[in-house]
């Protein structure tokens, strides 16, 4: 029992370093997924609007209004769902 207890602080200190690396890796993966997801969702939105406007002959200003409005709303909603940015 004795040798084990003396070693305990050292081992917990050792363990915290990979845990911290793991946490930053998880954060990086989180950011990466978010960027990929953003790119995918916005890409689909652009494609949808393009096809819609191709078939309807609606004015140009409406295209850009919907494009940027959609992006703004998307960012707002995802921020609320995530909750982290508002709380921190």
């Amino acid at each position: 029992m004795e040798p084990d207890t003396t070693h305990e602080p050292a081992t917990s200190d050792d363990r915290s370093r990979p845990r911290r690396a793991l946490a930053s890796l998880a954060a990086a993966v989180g950011v990466g997924t978010r960027i990929a997801l953003d790119a995918l969702v916005v890409g689909i939105w652009v494609l949808f609007l393009t096809l819609l406007f191709l078939s309807t002959n609606w004015p140009r200003w409406l295209f850009y209004a919907l494009l940027l409005g959609g992006v703004g709303l998307y960012v707002q909603f995802t921020a609320w769902w995530g909750g982290s940015t508002a709380e921190s």
Partner: peptide
């Protein structure tokens, strides 16, 4: 994030050639 995503959206729309028909 809004700026970057918005820029990406406009860039992609240009790449798809929306100006041609808009």
């Amino acid at each position: 994030r809004t700026l970057v995503t918005g820029g990406y959206a406009i860039g992609m729309a240009r790449l798809l050639g929306v100006e041609d028909f808009l």
